[in-house]
Protein backbone atom coordinates (compact mmCIF):
# COMPACT_ATOMS: atom_id res chain seq x y z
CA UNK A 1 0.00 0.00 0.00
CA UNK A 2 1.13 3.53 -0.70
CA UNK A 3 1.77 5.95 2.19
CA UNK A 4 -1.43 7.79 1.21
CA UNK A 5 -3.46 4.61 1.43
CA UNK A 6 -1.94 3.65 4.79
CA UNK A 7 -2.60 7.13 6.14
CA UNK A 8 -6.22 7.15 4.94
CA UNK A 9 -6.90 3.64 6.21
CA UNK A 10 -5.30 4.35 9.61
CA UNK A 11 -7.27 7.56 9.95
CA UNK A 12 -10.51 5.80 9.00
CA UNK A 13 -9.96 3.12 11.62
CA UNK A 14 -9.03 5.71 14.26
CA UNK A 15 -12.03 7.91 13.52
CA UNK A 16 -14.49 4.98 13.36
CA UNK A 17 -13.04 3.36 16.46
CA UNK A 18 -13.48 6.50 18.51
CA UNK A 19 -16.89 7.18 17.00
CA UNK A 20 -18.12 3.76 18.15
CA UNK A 21 -16.36 3.73 21.51
CA UNK A 22 -17.61 7.21 22.33
CA UNK A 23 -21.21 6.60 21.33
CA UNK A 24 -21.61 3.10 22.85
CA UNK A 25 -22.50 4.19 26.41
CA UNK A 26 -24.93 6.76 25.05
CA UNK A 27 -26.32 4.16 22.64
CA UNK A 28 -26.95 1.75 25.52
CA UNK A 29 -28.65 4.51 27.48
CA UNK A 30 -30.88 5.53 24.56
CA UNK A 31 -31.76 1.91 23.78
CA UNK A 32 -32.72 1.40 27.43
CA UNK A 33 -34.82 4.56 27.37
CA UNK A 34 -36.70 3.48 24.24
CA UNK A 35 -37.10 -0.19 25.18
CA UNK A 36 -37.88 0.04 28.87
CA UNK A 37 -39.21 3.50 29.72
CA UNK A 38 -42.48 5.19 29.00
CA UNK A 39 -42.50 8.95 29.15
CA UNK A 40 -44.28 11.80 27.41
CA UNK A 41 -42.50 12.83 24.24
CA UNK A 42 -40.97 9.40 23.69
CA UNK A 43 -41.97 9.50 20.02
CA UNK A 44 -40.08 12.77 19.62
CA UNK A 45 -36.93 11.37 21.24
CA UNK A 46 -37.25 8.27 19.08
CA UNK A 47 -37.57 10.48 16.00
CA UNK A 48 -34.58 12.64 16.94
CA UNK A 49 -32.36 9.60 17.45
CA UNK A 50 -33.35 8.21 14.06
CA UNK A 51 -33.18 11.53 12.21
CA UNK A 52 -29.58 11.12 10.92
CA UNK A 53 -30.75 7.96 9.17
CA UNK A 54 -33.01 9.92 6.83
CA UNK A 55 -31.42 13.37 6.71
CA UNK A 56 -28.89 14.14 3.97
CA UNK A 57 -25.50 13.74 5.71
CA UNK A 58 -24.56 17.18 4.46
CA UNK A 59 -27.31 18.62 6.67
CA UNK A 60 -25.89 16.81 9.69
CA UNK A 61 -22.42 18.07 8.87
CA UNK A 62 -23.62 21.62 8.47
CA UNK A 63 -25.54 21.54 11.75
CA UNK A 64 -22.44 20.21 13.49
CA UNK A 65 -20.41 23.05 11.97
CA UNK A 66 -22.90 25.61 13.22
CA UNK A 67 -22.97 24.13 16.70
CA UNK A 68 -19.44 22.85 17.21
CA UNK A 69 -17.44 25.11 14.83
CA UNK A 70 -14.94 27.60 16.27
CA UNK A 71 -17.65 30.26 16.21
CA UNK A 72 -20.48 27.84 16.95
CA UNK A 73 -22.63 27.94 20.07
CA UNK A 74 -20.88 25.09 21.83
CA UNK A 75 -17.65 25.19 19.82
CA UNK A 76 -16.70 28.76 20.84
CA UNK A 77 -17.33 27.88 24.48
CA UNK A 78 -15.20 24.76 24.23
CA UNK A 79 -12.38 26.77 22.68
CA UNK A 80 -12.56 29.63 25.19
CA UNK A 81 -12.60 27.39 28.25
CA UNK A 82 -10.60 24.34 27.25
CA UNK A 83 -8.76 25.47 24.14
CA UNK A 84 -10.33 22.54 22.31
CA UNK A 85 -11.04 22.76 18.60
CA UNK A 86 -13.29 20.18 17.05
CA UNK A 87 -14.10 21.43 13.57
CA UNK A 88 -11.52 20.47 10.92
CA UNK A 89 -9.84 17.90 13.20
CA UNK A 90 -10.07 14.08 13.33
CA UNK A 91 -12.11 14.44 16.53
CA UNK A 92 -14.71 16.30 14.53
CA UNK A 93 -14.65 13.51 11.95
CA UNK A 94 -15.28 11.00 14.76
CA UNK A 95 -18.21 13.03 16.05
CA UNK A 96 -19.73 13.35 12.57
CA UNK A 97 -19.39 9.59 12.04
CA UNK A 98 -20.82 8.86 15.46
CA UNK A 99 -23.92 10.99 14.84
CA UNK A 100 -24.57 9.42 11.44
CA UNK A 101 -24.06 5.85 12.71
CA UNK A 102 -25.89 6.34 16.02
CA UNK A 103 -29.38 5.23 14.88
CA UNK A 104 -28.00 1.93 13.60
CA UNK A 105 -26.34 1.25 16.91
CA UNK A 106 -29.40 2.17 18.98
CA UNK A 107 -31.72 0.07 16.82
CA UNK A 108 -29.62 -3.06 17.16
CA UNK A 109 -29.14 -2.68 20.92
CA UNK A 110 -32.79 -1.85 21.48
CA UNK A 111 -33.91 -4.96 19.61
CA UNK A 112 -31.64 -7.18 21.67
CA UNK A 113 -32.78 -5.52 24.88
CA UNK A 114 -36.42 -6.10 23.98
CA UNK A 115 -35.54 -9.76 23.44
CA UNK A 116 -34.25 -10.20 26.99
CA UNK A 117 -36.66 -12.15 29.20
CA UNK A 118 -37.67 -9.84 32.04
CA UNK A 119 -38.41 -12.96 34.08
CA UNK A 120 -34.68 -13.62 34.26
CA UNK A 121 -34.12 -10.14 35.64
CA UNK A 122 -36.83 -10.75 38.23
CA UNK A 123 -35.11 -14.00 39.17
CA UNK A 124 -31.84 -12.13 39.64
CA UNK A 125 -33.58 -9.60 41.86
CA UNK A 126 -35.04 -12.32 44.09
CA UNK A 127 -31.52 -13.77 44.34
CA UNK A 128 -30.18 -10.59 45.87
CA UNK A 129 -29.04 -8.47 42.92
CA UNK A 130 -29.92 -4.80 42.87
CA UNK A 131 -31.03 -3.21 39.56
CA UNK A 132 -27.51 -2.15 38.51
CA UNK A 133 -25.97 -5.49 39.35
CA UNK A 134 -28.82 -7.27 37.58
CA UNK A 135 -28.07 -5.23 34.47
CA UNK A 136 -24.40 -6.12 34.40
CA UNK A 137 -24.70 -9.75 35.45
CA UNK A 138 -27.83 -10.78 33.53
CA UNK A 139 -29.21 -8.22 31.08
CA UNK A 140 -25.97 -7.13 29.44
CA UNK A 141 -24.57 -10.65 28.89
CA UNK A 142 -27.89 -11.68 27.34
CA UNK A 143 -28.01 -8.71 24.96
CA UNK A 144 -24.33 -8.98 24.03
CA UNK A 145 -24.94 -10.42 20.54
CA UNK A 146 -27.17 -7.43 19.75
CA UNK A 147 -24.70 -4.97 21.21
CA UNK A 148 -21.99 -6.51 19.09
CA UNK A 149 -24.13 -6.23 15.97
CA UNK A 150 -24.78 -2.60 16.81
CA UNK A 151 -21.09 -1.90 17.32
CA UNK A 152 -20.03 -3.51 14.05
CA UNK A 153 -22.84 -1.95 12.05
CA UNK A 154 -22.06 1.50 13.33
CA UNK A 155 -18.33 0.89 12.85
CA UNK A 156 -18.92 -0.09 9.23
CA UNK A 157 -21.21 2.89 8.73
CA UNK A 158 -18.56 5.18 10.24
CA UNK A 159 -15.94 3.82 7.86
CA UNK A 160 -18.10 4.82 4.91
CA UNK A 161 -19.09 8.23 6.27
CA UNK A 162 -18.51 10.97 3.71
CA UNK A 163 -21.10 13.76 3.48
CA UNK A 164 -21.23 14.93 7.08
CA UNK A 165 -17.47 14.53 7.46
CA UNK A 166 -16.46 16.60 4.46
CA UNK A 167 -18.96 19.31 5.39
CA UNK A 168 -17.90 19.51 9.04
CA UNK A 169 -14.15 18.81 8.94
CA UNK A 170 -13.31 19.13 5.25
CA UNK A 171 -10.45 17.27 3.54
CA UNK A 172 -7.22 17.78 5.46
CA UNK A 173 -4.42 15.29 4.66
CA UNK A 174 -3.32 13.43 7.77
CA UNK A 175 -6.12 14.90 9.87
CA UNK A 176 -9.51 14.30 8.29
CA UNK A 177 -8.73 12.63 4.96
CA UNK A 178 -10.36 9.25 5.63
CA UNK A 179 -10.77 6.53 3.00
CA UNK A 180 -13.97 7.85 1.36
CA UNK A 181 -12.66 11.40 1.31
CA UNK A 182 -9.30 10.38 -0.16
CA UNK A 183 -11.20 8.37 -2.72
CA UNK A 184 -13.41 11.31 -3.63
CA UNK A 185 -10.37 13.58 -3.94
CA UNK A 186 -8.71 11.09 -6.28
CA UNK A 187 -11.75 10.87 -8.53
CA UNK A 188 -11.55 14.65 -8.90
CA UNK A 189 -7.86 14.47 -9.87
CA UNK A 190 -6.93 13.81 -13.54
CA UNK A 191 -5.16 10.48 -13.80
CA UNK A 192 -6.25 9.35 -10.33
CA UNK A 193 -8.44 6.49 -11.54
CA UNK A 194 -6.04 3.66 -10.79
CA UNK A 195 -5.34 4.91 -7.29
CA UNK A 196 -9.07 5.45 -6.72
CA UNK A 197 -9.75 1.89 -7.72
CA UNK A 198 -7.19 0.62 -5.22
CA UNK A 199 -8.89 2.62 -2.46
CA UNK A 200 -12.22 1.17 -3.56
CA UNK A 201 -10.87 -2.33 -3.10
CA UNK A 202 -9.43 -1.46 0.31
CA UNK A 203 -12.80 0.00 1.40
CA UNK A 204 -14.67 -3.10 0.30
CA UNK A 205 -12.23 -5.42 2.02
CA UNK A 206 -12.32 -3.52 5.32
CA UNK A 207 -16.12 -3.21 5.37
CA UNK A 208 -16.60 -6.84 4.43
CA UNK A 209 -14.10 -8.00 7.05
CA UNK A 210 -16.00 -6.03 9.69
CA UNK A 211 -19.33 -7.60 8.74
CA UNK A 212 -17.84 -11.07 8.60
CA UNK A 213 -16.21 -10.67 12.00
CA UNK A 214 -19.50 -9.50 13.45
CA UNK A 215 -21.37 -12.45 12.02
CA UNK A 216 -18.84 -14.96 13.34
CA UNK A 217 -18.66 -13.41 16.79
CA UNK A 218 -22.42 -13.13 17.01
CA UNK A 219 -22.80 -16.81 16.08
CA UNK A 220 -20.33 -17.85 18.73
CA UNK A 221 -22.13 -15.80 21.36
CA UNK A 222 -25.50 -17.24 20.37
CA UNK A 223 -24.07 -20.74 20.49
CA UNK A 224 -22.76 -20.08 24.00
CA UNK A 225 -26.23 -19.09 25.14
CA UNK A 226 -27.85 -22.13 23.59
CA UNK A 227 -25.28 -24.82 24.32
Amino acid sequence: MTPLEIEALGLSLLVSGWAVAGSLPLGLACAWLLARCDFPGKAVVDGLIHLPLVLPPVVVGYVLLVVLGRRGVVGSWLFDWFGVTIAFTWKGAAIASAVIAFPLMVRAIRLSLEGVDRGLEQAARTLGCGPVRTFFSVTLPLMLPGVLTGVILSFARSLSEFGATITFVSNIPGETRTLPIALYALTQTPGGDAAALRLCVISVVVAFAALLASELLSRRLQARLKA
Partner: peptide, 20 residues
Protein backbone atom coordinates in the same frame (compact mmCIF):
# COMPACT_ATOMS: atom_id res chain seq x y z
CA UNK B 1 -38.20 -3.54 50.64
CA UNK B 2 -36.76 -4.15 47.17
CA UNK B 3 -36.88 -7.82 46.09
CA UNK B 4 -33.12 -8.19 46.51
CA UNK B 5 -33.33 -7.17 50.16
CA UNK B 6 -36.08 -9.63 51.15
CA UNK B 7 -33.96 -12.78 51.38
CA UNK B 8 -36.61 -15.08 49.90
CA UNK B 9 -36.13 -17.96 47.52
CA UNK B 10 -38.42 -18.03 44.49
CA UNK B 11 -38.88 -21.06 42.26
CA UNK B 12 -40.82 -20.00 39.21
CA UNK B 13 -43.16 -22.05 37.08
CA UNK B 14 -40.70 -21.85 34.20
CA UNK B 15 -37.22 -22.53 35.58
CA UNK B 16 -35.81 -19.08 34.66
CA UNK B 17 -32.22 -20.28 34.73
CA UNK B 18 -29.63 -17.87 33.37
CA UNK B 19 -28.73 -19.24 29.91
CA UNK B 20 -25.30 -17.58 29.85
Amino acid sequence: LAPERRRLGYVFQEHRLFPH
